[in-house]
Design a protein around this nucleic acid. Structure first.
Lengths: 251, 251
DNA sequence: CCTTGACTTTGACGTTACGTCATAGTTTAT
DNA sequence: ATAAACTATGACGTAACGTCAAAGTCAAGG
């Protein structure tokens, strides 16, 4: 299967001009060039373009991408694994930004106050993230952990999408809960938001959700040491706070 | 509390040069300038910078941000709400990218095969998200409209052509719906014509259309205020009218 | 009061990753 | 055979800063 510039452009979402530019700077040369000068791309180039786009998404300059891809020890699998870790971190940043907006909205209503620092949470991180410092070694272990979790999820009968959703919800829930705990108000907007996220999260595992179930779980969290440890990790006393918030949420 | 350039820069994560540039183009002027020429920023500017960074994160050009922020009808709360929706959209894109990497890794191991199209899932969508051209002149309202579009767009990456087609359909649909609403008859020819156009439009985003889906969507339009606002904009009460018409259309 | 070092100012030019023409040749469809 | 659609190569334009250089400003210590 051969692609012309426009075909490849449309499939990948970049412009034809971009492909010409990549050819010009030697980042992605076509598989062959006809006598007419027309460019033709094949499988190798399609896969390379995918790599380029991933690296670009993660904030690498084209020059650096060129170096990376043309390195003699370039390892596709390793690259994908790095992408995965980096993308997950970027997603974390979005969680932070979303929490930032949520808090800003609450602050606008006068229910909480926000420090100036807090107003930029999620933006500052970008510095660390965008720059390529992040591509270290401990990423590998992190990826390993994710794999374990995922295997575990499979045992429980979750699809990859469900697992992704549950993780996303859990992260957002924990962040919101932490912020809510600081307000010391289990009836406040943030605490109730946290409860809602908790519900969403539960729904992934137990679609037969009910208020009674949710209330019972709140009590179990407080009563059972294993759960308690998990939520007190967020902040001491957080487990009780969550239970109180759930009690209000379920009325 | 007054901030000097470097103080504000460090807190927000941008560079001092950036703040000077924003001053230069009139996007963010300091609260006061000392006789020495030193810039000093205060609360208002801090909050404005936060807005700027949110809009920037979402792919707006500085010129458009300037227009948005200086508009007489700029509404901070509304802005934050828009940010929230847009950020959640972007997060969805990351989910897609993460899934893409995961699949690519599995494909590399030979466990599954991936089509070339699939290799670019999550990148193509970016077009819709980043590109502001389609926002036209009245960015404000369009930004709201895009919210709805993108809710569907996330289901499938759209090419520029597909998007153009969907826009044509949407415009014709809205015109027909308006005319139908004036007849006050959800079972009438015009209303049913509108439903048909609505279906055509949906098909662009969601080819696996079903009557159940269409019916459910009618209810969601009424229930979700973001959608409701969008259709009530055509005429007050239009959302319910559309739902009723869809109910008849799908029998 | 003076010095020193950290901070700030205004230019001015450079850079990245393309967008946007214009002009001209090529391929495909009817 | 001819139009319609596609592609090529310049060449210039751009957005949002980065990166100097040269010079003025401020806060603290001696």
């Amino acid at each position: 299967m051969e692609y012309t510039v426009n075909k490849l452009a449309k499939m990948s979402g970049v412009s034809a001009r971009t492909l010409r530019y990549y050819d010009e700077i030697g980042l992605l040369k076509p598989a062959r060039v006809a006598a007419s000068g027309y460019r033709f791309y094949r499988q190798t180039q399609v896969d390379m373009l995918q790599q380029v786009l991933f690296y670009k998404e993660l904030g690498f300059s084209l020059e650096d991408i060129k170096k990376l891809l043309s390195a003699p020890d370039f390892d596709r699998q390793r690259a994908f694994e790095d992408h995965l870790a980096a993308l997950q971190e970027k997603r974390e940043r979005f969680e932070t930004l979303i929490l930032n907006v949520t808090k800003s909205l609450t602050a606008l209503k006068g229910e909480i106050t926000m420090s100036d620092q807090e107003k930029f949470e999620g933006f500052k991180q970008k510095l660390l993230n965008d720059n390529e410092q992040r591509y270290g070694d401990e990423i590998r272990t992190k990826y390993g952990d994710a794999l374990v979790d995922e295997t575990y999820a499979k045992l429980k009968g979750l699809t990859k999408e469900q697992y992704a959703k549950s993780e996303r919800l859990r992260l957002e829930f924990e962040k919101t809960l932490k912020a809510a705990f600081d307000t010391e108000d289990p009836a406040g907007t943030l605490a109730q938001k946290a409860c809602d996220l908790h519900k969403q999260w539960l729904l992934v595992f137990y679609p037969r959700y009910s208020k009674e179930y949710h209330l019972g779980l709140g009590e179990i969290y407080v009563a059972d040491e294993r759960f308690r440890a998990n939520y007190d990790k967020i902040a001491p006393g957080c487990t009780e706070f969550l239970r109180d918030a759930i009690n209000i949420y379920c009325r």
